[in-house]
Design a binder for these strands. Structure first.
Lengths: 157, 157
DNA sequence: GACGCTGGATTTAGATTCCGAACTCTTTCA
DNA sequence: TGAAAGAGTTCGGAATCTAAATCCAGCGTC
């Protein structure tokens, strides 16, 4: 993760995957169904059968993935009650899960660019009150953009 | 993906996963080994045995994942030749794969915050020539940061 | 030029996970 | 009393994963 144009050859990564926070993150969210669940959750889906209809995955897989996400802290299991119906659980994003939103948007935009087949993207993102699209990127502490070729990795110790 | 603080209940997402670029992206990179391969590649790993030593995954799985990434266009299969040795393939990131870097860095920083166990992150990112850390985020066309609660989703049509 | 070495990749067998459908359980409505 | 709806669990067969052994091609060596 050094320079954009050309990454020097390495035999191993500078940080062993065992104590890398990226690898730890991948252990949780690096799964097709898990990511699709988070996608649906960010669009407001909360209920078991709604997730199932949205994803089309086996109920047993959905059940397992929801449990993992609740245990990891990305989803919170609450109870909802429609009047005249019985109480049921719902799965809502915690702030831990919410903070993955920039990454999901970034993946969406990556797909728009590289997999979009020339069609305009079905969903785009703007600043509130504006109509021009925003994009995922990097900012310094003052909120100014840092272009990809300016990024440098710094190892601790 | 509307407002940060409270997402309204939805029975289905506004975009069916079949023609959603996020879902298409997840089909490619939504896999534990694939993401770990991309992580290693961004750190400069290029050779089969180096990937294998880095990831510790079965060679058959590695072989399959590399093929998927080459077919999808994220990796390019080239040939390298050490003098006195025979020519061998190496797998280098294409610009398509390179452009995933902000997302991988974003995932790293998400892990630093939520899975870091209080330790300072082993790797951080700065602007070239500076020492202050940068972060993944959103910018408008003029390069100014857009804070998460200012983001709005806009559907086409 | 037969032999071993080395790096890349496939084969094989067994364990795990996935999938799809059916089933369970509980409360509410008719 | 019966039927419906929501949230799961159970179960057998199919696909995938893992680990280890094997294959394969070219280079250096003798």
């Amino acid at each position: 993760m050094l320079q954009m144009s050309q990454i020097p050859l390495a035999r191993r990564s500078p940080i062993p995957p065992e104590n890398c926070n990226l690898a730890r993150t991948i252990e949780i969210v690096g799964d097709r169904w898990t990511l699709l669940i988070l996608r649906a959750a960010l669009y407001g889906v909360r209920r078991f059968d709604d997730f199932q209809a949205e994803l089309g995955c086996p109920r047993t897989v959905l059940s397992g993935r929801l449990k993992i996400l609740v245990d990891a802290g990305l989803l919170t299991k609450k109870t909802y009650k429609v009047p005249g119906k019985r109480a049921r659980p719902e799965y809502v994003l915690s702030s831990m899960g919410m903070s993955l939103r920039p990454i999901l948007i970034g993946l969406t935009q990556w797909g728009d660019v590289w997999l979009g087949k020339g069609e305009p993207p079905p969903i785009s993102f703007t600043r509130a009150g504006s109509k021009t699209a925003i994009r995922a990127g990097f900012v310094d502490p003052e909120g100014r953009e840092v272009r990809p070729d300016q990024i440098r990795a710094v190892l601790r110790g």
